[in-house]
Design a protein around this nucleic acid. Structure first.
Lengths: 89, 89
DNA sequence: GCAAGTACTTACCAAACGGTAACTAAGTGA
DNA sequence: TCACTTAGTTACCGTTTGGTAAGTACTTGC
């Protein structure tokens, strides 16, 4: 599982730190990501057991993403990466 | 500067945490990296001001890579990533 | 019955990535 | 004179990546 080495995975995880988000909202927090990349990324993160995908059987569809305990465990790293990234601007 | 989002940059930095290394030795610590990728990676890290490249004018060539202060500043993150990576095996 | 709304999925295509292998450089020692 | 040594560059080419745009699904409200 290369968490690093991917462009979007860390960003998705970072945005989920504050709590569960529904699909569309989460995607909008990441300008520049395409529809295809977004679904691909969250699918992989789900396979990595870093987040859960909950589908509510309603119409129109409602899907929520939430960090697993494992996903939460990288909170510190993600925050530090964020902090460090800000220094370099 | 996307430090994450690349496969090799973090690895190069991690291996330099222990101190300066000469080119060939550093490359050998990373099995799987090709010659091309290695030079490309260190060149970019140099442009990012994360490491310095010192060329000793001798024959055969002797080149050393060393972290800059900026490079040192991500030590904590690299170590945590390493720790976390071990958990997931 | 028809559009709206949300979350995808797929086919197609261009661009980027990355590996291999051959090549350069230049002083030393046999 | 010639191979050895270390570091790096380059051309070529296959593979992977990733964007666009169109299509699927299904219920509610007009």
């Amino acid at each position: 599982m290369d968490l690093i080495g991917t462009k979007w995975k860390p960003q998705v995880l970072f945005h989920l730190l504050e709590g569960p988000q529904r699909s569309g909202v989460l995607q909008q927090t990441m300008p520049g990501i395409s529809n295809k990349m977004f679904t691909q990324t969250v699918r992989e993160l789900e396979q990595d057991h870093l987040l859960t995908r909950t589908v509510y059987p309603v119409v129109p569809p409602h899907v929520e993403y939430e960090l697993t305990a494992l996903g939460q465990s990288i909170k510190l790293i993600l925050c530090e990466l964020d902090e460090w990234g800000k220094l370099e601007e």
